[in-house]
Design a protein around this nucleic acid. Structure first.
Length: 259
DNA sequence: CAACAGGCGGGAC
DNA sequence: GTCCCGCCTGTT
C-alpha cells in the first residue's frame, strides 16, 4: 500500500542531516523513519513523496510526525529583507521542518549528543535499539534495568550515568513525561534543566525536537559563533516564537552549506 | 602526539 | 552570578 502527496517545502534529504533525528536512514528506495512502534519507508523525488503505507496510516501517524500542519513558508516570510545571512541560510535549508518525534527517544538522544559527534551518537543509539526485539527505541523500563558496565559497551562514555539516572527517573514517574508534554515552554525548560545531565543546550533541544516548542533556541558551539558574527545584538524581535525553526536553517547552512 | 566533537557538573570566587 | 576544569571515546 502506498500513499502519494505533492512535495511542498519539505526535504527528507535535508531533514536527515539536519541534526534533529539520529536514525533516519537512507535505504535503497527511500528514507526510513520511526515513531514509537511504527516505521515507514518514504520515497522522495522532485515533485512528490510516496509513503509506503495506507492513506489511513499516513493521516493517523505520519501527517503529524512530519508536521504537515505547520506552514513553514509562512514562518520564513517573517525573515527581514535586510537579513541577508538568514535569507541565504533559509535558501540553503529550504525544506527542513521540525519533526514531532517521540519525547522519550529525544531526551535520551540529546543526553548522549553532548560534547559528542554525530557519527558516534548515531552509532550509540543504533546499538541501544538492538536491545528490543523489534528494533524500536528501548523504553525507560528497559534502560533502567541495564547496568552501567553494560551501558558502557554502547560507547556512551561518561554520559552513561545520565542515561541510567534518567531512565530510572522516568520509570519511577519522578519525571512524568505526560505532564511534561502539557507544560508551556518556560516550565518544561526549567523542569528539564533540573535533571542530572541536562543543561541549557540539551534542555532546549528537547523542548524543540521533543515537545515541538518552536520558540526554543538551542545554542551550541556553531550557533554561538553565528550569533557573534551575524547577530551581535541578539536575534531580531520579529523572529520571536519561531527561533527554533530559524536555528535549524542556520545550523544546516553552517554544516552543509549550499551543496 | 594533541585537538576536537551540537556540554555538563562541580568547585572557586 | 561567571569562569574554569575534567570528562569517555573515536576520529583527524
Amino acid at each position: 500500500m502506498k500513499f502519494t502527496l505533492k512535495r511542498d517545502n519539505i526535504s527528507l534529504e535535508k531533514i536527515s542531516v539536519s541534526g534533529q533525528i539520529f536514525r533516519m536512514k537512507r535505504e535503497d528506495e527511500g528514507f526510513r523513519v520511526h515513531f514509537r512502534k511504527d516505521s515507514v519507508l518514504v520515497e522522495e523525488d522532485e515533485e512528490k513523496l510516496t509513503f509506503h503505507c495506507s492513506e489511513e496510516e499516513f493521516f493517523k501517524i505520519w501527517y503529524d510526525f512530519f508536521d504537515f500542519e505547520t506552514d513553514y513558508s509562512k514562518i520564513a516570510a517573517l525573515i527581514d529583507k535586510d537579513d541577508k545571512y538568514l535569507l541565504t541560510a533559509y535558501e540553503s535549508g529550504y525544506g527542513i521542518r521540525i519533526l514531532r518525534q517521540d519525547l522519550w527517544e529525544i531526551i535520551i538522544s540529546f543526553l548522549i549528543s553532548q560534547n559528542n559527534n554525530i557519527k558516534r551518537i548515531t552509532n550509540s543509539i543504533s546499538k541501544l535499539c538492538n536491545l528490543t526485539k523489534d528494533g524500536s527505541f528501548p523504553t525507560p523500563e528497559i534502560l533502567a534495568e541495564i547496568s552501567i558496565d553494560e551501558l558502557r559497551l554502547f560507547g556512551l562514555g561518561y554520559r552513561d550515568v545520565y542515561v541510567k539516572k534518567m531512565a530510572e527517573r522516568v520509570r519511577n514517574k519522578e519525571l512524568d513525561l505526560n505532564i511534561l508534554e502539557k507544560l508551556p515552554y518556560e516550565e518544561a525548560f526549567k523542569s528539564l534543566k533540573s535533571e542530572f545531565g541536562i543543561g541549557n543546550k540539551v534542555a532546549d533541544c528537547i523542548c524543540l525536537f521533543g515537545l515541538h516548542k518552536l520558540n526554543a533556541f538551542p545554542i551550541d558551539t556553531h550557533i554561538k559563533q553565528i550569533l557573534k558574527t551575524h547577530y551581535p545584538e541578539g536575534l531580531p524581535e520579529n523572529y520571536r516564537g519561531f527561533e527554533g525553526v530559524i536555528q535549524q536553517y542556520m545550523f544546516y547552512y553552517e554544516l552543509n552549506g549550499t551543496r
